[in-house]
Design a protein around this nucleic acid. Structure first.
Lengths: 356, 356
DNA sequence: TCCAGAACGGAAAGCGCTTTCCCGTAAGTT
DNA sequence: AACTTACGGGAAAGCGCTTTCCGTTCTGGA
């Protein structure tokens, strides 16, 4: 340790060290200490000598500034919020990771909130994030297709925005804000089209909770494509897989009991696709893709490792998160911006030509 | 909206609403407003009438308190930090989810920091979390087995603790603090023992970066068990799989080129196991488990969906996170506590009796 | 009837910073 | 040589809360 101050031993006072203490040790005013440490206040520059003394004192005392106090004085923070349904879900984990990567590049701290699909919690967290004076928040959970909820969400978002906050939504949330939108409709259409091209004419769909806008969009896309190919979809050919592996596994059994003629199943996310594959393979003894084709949605990292490797619609998950965070950094614009991100079909081994 | 105040229309002032404004609208002092809204200050109670007026005013103005200001005045916050290597990694995602669940139950906000295995970043985040006056932090990334780094980490942790912070470590970090320790050694031994019992005598190990304490522990456990079974481990029988799927896939090819006699492979985490399985199956055309058995580590959610379903050592990941957060809530004790969490072997289809 | 003591409201002093002002000194103009 | 400019440093006023301390009103007991 070079240059220890000989006359003032480095005994760290109890409790957090304050700027004042640093200033005293350096023999300057707290104004100067502040300027030396965070030369943000305009063009004011601290002389070389004093600057060094302050920096040394700060290091010796292991000083870190009191962020809440700083936030109060500057009336701005360096934290952003990210709201997801569940971090343990690889879909949200990937989005969060993308967002956190760019947050990091810009020195922003991330408050991560998991709502576990509880709309009430989403509102609650939004309020708390507003209280924290988070600069911005990425609303990354799927939106809820509920009129009353959307109204309340919009109100909360408006309040937040009135306070100078900025929210960017991932997917449809029914609020007027910057939005990053994966092409859910187009993606689902792609999946159907792929199966159709392979000769399939009898489709099943394992869906999710209709309350989620993501589900609605994907479902819409699939139905639209079916319809425009001249195919219908009977109620018996569709089932709610609950967006989890286990529910979907059970749902798949039910679906095939009801509609054994199906040769192709579109599953609205990969998590459920894993369950469907398990049901088909282990519960029903069906060979995929020889007897029945399956396509998933999301292209989660494990999709290629499933048995068989899953044909699925790829969403650029990390990108979605990263772009959302980018939008935060480029600040709110007069008009809300919308960024559409393309999906892409990744063909692996869970689909093949229709059996005849 | 019942009881709108008729004489004072609800025009929300520009910028965040302050407590003062709420107080004015309610016709009380800010002290009373504060007490009515957050009756935390001892036993002081606000009269029914005033309390109602304050609450109404707050609601009408959509007031949320300024958390940084509150933090400054109370000199405490409700935020905790969680530091992981990478949220997109299901291992950390699961731990984080466990921790966040508990945090939520106790009204704590979580700052999530991802270090991407950069020790420097870990230090950096710890400092920033200290600056934020985070009540506590869960250090959930694997520790780094580096003398110099550990010294610096300990210094940072000490400073944090001196400020009243509390850190709990997940796994070995070489610092004296509350710790939640998965039984990595015992788990690895379990894996080896299982294979031995199936008649295997020629083992390979796909390891990870030796800088991680998790890797060291697991490796130690495996070697110890091999040794006590009278088996050795040649350098050619071990390879670093880099802790990622892709690296591990390539590593497995190399390993088997060098040591084709292996009948069993212990892979030090499930992510790599997925890669190893892919290499064996698709690159080398080996049948698992008939020709070669594989056991993984962690029991990530997708382990059961691999081809074949992976025999692996289960770590109670969500629990690890939850228990760590619990330790935070039960405050620091005089002596650092250590909580050991058991591992458990989950036998699926990637292991069977040794071929002969 | 008087007074002690609850009970409850408000004034005001911080919490640890940032950022205006203001001021003294040194450097550049005519 | 007198006078403006920079320039760099400090005093002090907040930022929006919480909390101590004090004052007032009201209640009940002797």
């Amino acid at each position: 340790m070079p240059n220890p101050t000989p006359d003032t031993p480095v005994t760290r006072p109890a409790g957090p060290v304050t700027l004042q203490q640093v200033a005293e040790r350096a023999g300057v005013s707290s104004a100067t200490a502040s300027r030396a440490l965070h030369g943000s206040s305009g063009t004011r520059i601290v002389g070389e000598e004093l600057r060094r003394r302050v920096l040394d004192a700060a290091r010796e005392l292991r000083y870190v500034s009191n962020a809440p106090a700083q936030a109060l004085a500057r009336s701005t923070t360096t934290v952003v919020g990210v709201v997801v349904h569940d971090v343990a879900d690889p879909y949200f984990a990937a989005i969060a990771a993308g967002a956190m990567g760019v947050a990091r590049e810009h020195g922003l701290l991330v408050m991560l909130a998991a709502t576990f699909r509880d709309p009430e919690l989403e509102l609650d967290y939004l309020g708390r994030l507003r209280a924290q004076r988070a600069r911005a928040v990425v609303l990354a959970g799927s939106g809820f297709a509920d009129r009353e909820f959307t109204r309340r969400l919009a109100a909360e978002v408006d309040a937040y925005r009135a306070d100078g906050g900025h929210v960017v939504a991932v997917g449809a949330h029914g609020i007027a804000s910057d939005t990053v939108r994966p092409a859910n409709r187009a993606g689902a259409a792609l999946a159907v089209r792929h199966l159709y091209d392979l000769g399939h004419r009898s489709f099943g769909i394992v869906s999710g909770p209709r309350t989620l806008t993501t589900v609605r969009d994907r479902l819409d896309g699939a139905r639209w494509q079916l319809r425009s190919l001249g195919l219908g979809l009977l109620p018996t050919q569709m089932i709610d897989g609950g967006f989890t592996r286990e529910h979907a596994r059970a749902a798949a059994r039910t679906l095939l009991a009801r509609a054994p003629e199906l040769t192709a199943i579109v599953v609205l996310n990969d998590l459920m696709a894993a369950g469907v594959l398990a049901a088909l393979r282990d519960d029903l003894g069906l060979r995929v893709p020889e007897q029945i084709s399956v396509v998933g949605f999301d292209d989660l990292p494990f999709a290629a490792d499933l048995n068989p490797p899953l044909t699925t619609v790829r969403l650029p998950l990390a990108d979605i998160g990263a772009r959302a965070m980018d939008m935060i950094l480029t600040g709110p614009t007069v008009e809300p911006r919308t960024l559409d991100l393309d999906t892409e079909l990744v063909v692996r081994s869970s689909t093949t030509t229709a059996p005849r």
